[in-house]
Simulated assay, not measured.
Amino acid sequence: MLKNSKVNLLLVDHTKFDKAAFLKLFDRNDIDVLVTDKKPSGEWIERLKTDNVQLIY
């Protein structure tokens, strides 16, 4: 599904950052836009910049 879409947008509330997940569905660089409810840590902001992910909070 991600490969066939023009824009991949991920909605994430702030409590999901820095949590381990049971499975991995995609890599950060598969996402074009990440929308969250609060500003993430500086480390996350840098990770997203490195992967060319637009951040909206």
Rank of each mutant, 00 (worst) to 15 (best):
L34K: 10
D37A: 05
D37R: 00
K49W: 00
D37N: 15
D13A: 02
P40M: 01
K24I: 14
A21K: 09
L11C: 07
D30F: 03
L2P: 00
T15W: 04
I56D: 08
K49D: 12
V53F: 10
F17R: 00
D30L: 04
D13N: 15
K19H: 08
L10Q: 00
K16V: 05
F26D: 05
L9C: 14
K38C: 05
V33P: 11
T50S: 14
P40C: 01
M1N: 11
N52T: 09
F22Y: 13
R47Y: 14
L48G: 03
I45P: 00
N52F: 01
D30N: 13
L25F: 06
V53G: 01
V7Q: 11
K38W: 01
E43M: 12
G42R: 10
N8S: 10
K3I: 05
N29C: 04
A20C: 09
K3C: 06
K38M: 06
K49R: 11
L11P: 01
L34P: 02
L9K: 07
I31M: 08
D30P: 04
Q54P: 08
I56C: 04
K49M: 05
K19V: 07
K16L: 05
D37K: 03
L10T: 01
K39R: 11
W44H: 06
D18N: 13
K49A: 13
V7R: 12
L55G: 01
N29M: 00
V53Y: 09
D18H: 12
D30K: 03
T15P: 00
L55H: 05
W44G: 01
W44V: 07
K6A: 10
D32P: 02
A21S: 15
D51H: 09
T15S: 14
L55R: 02
L23D: 10
L25W: 07
L48E: 01
R47N: 11
K39C: 08
I45H: 07
